[in-house]
């Protein structure tokens, strides 16, 4: 099953709008006084959660493609990845603007001293080159192989992102654990495929 170009454009448009849902939800809650007693905390958590969600969804594209045979899914991956960066940026801006209100001394201290913030900040920094090289021109300039190598760092970024969440929670690790398991499955799928591929090549060689 492969959609026509027009269908694909429509799917992309729907996907684009759907990905704005979490932001719209926040805007609605803000408007309807539904962000709770500590709105800044709510906003920060919401945006952080959706950053992780988008990272995982982006990483799910390849396994889904292989399992379902819907290779056109790859056409959505860049958008999903950029949305992960979009929510990460909002999450980061919420922290430096709403939470810390540009108190740079305290931000620098946080990043240096608090492991969960160090992790989150690292993951955010590592996302920047990926977002910057996401357009077709950059793929051509870097060359497919180098581009692929660079973009594999998203595996590390997702792992650091989950660690960031894990280190933040007070005691109940249920949710970070869920993210860790899902991420493990997504990365495990790739590792398994790679191992099988190697085996196949070996067998062919013998």
């Amino acid at each position: 099953m492969s959609p026509s170009l027009r269908q694909l454009a429509a799917i992309k448009a729907v996907c684009f709008i759907a990905c704005l849902g979490p932001l719209a939800q926040l805007a609605w809650l803000g408007f309807a006084d539904g962000l709770g007693a500590n709105p800044i905390e709510y906003i920060t958590r919401h945006l952080g959660t959706w950053t992780l969600n988008f990272l995982l969804v982006t990483l799910a594209v390849t396994p889904l493609r292989h399992i379902s045979g819907w290779h056109w899914l790859i056409r959505l991956r860049r958008m999903l990845g950029l949305y992960a960066f979009f929510y990460a940026t909002l999450h980061f801006l919420t922290y430096i603007w709403l939470d810390q209100f540009f108190d740079w001394a305290s931000i620098v201290k946080d990043i240096a001293k608090r492991p969960f913030i160090t992790a989150g900040f690292t993951a955010f920094l590592l996302l920047i080159p990926l977002a910057a090289t996401s357009n077709t021109a950059m793929v051509k300039r870097l060359g497919g192989r180098r581009w692929t190598q660079l973009h594999r760092s998203v595996y590390a970024i997702a792992i650091i992102g989950v660690i960031h969440y894990w280190w933040l929670v007070k005691k109940d690790i249920t949710l970070p654990l869920l993210y860790a398991v899902l991420l493990g499955a997504l990365l495990g799928f790739r590792a398994l495929r790679l191992a099988r591929e190697r085996q196949r090549q070996m067998n062919a060689y013998l």
Binding site: A27, W28, L29, D33
Partner: peptide
């Protein structure tokens, strides 16, 4: 916060 939200959700007024 409302003002910030409103820029995103311009028009939806029902508070």
């Amino acid at each position: 916060i409302k003002a910030a939200s409103a820029t995103v959700l311009a028009g939806a007024a029902l508070y």
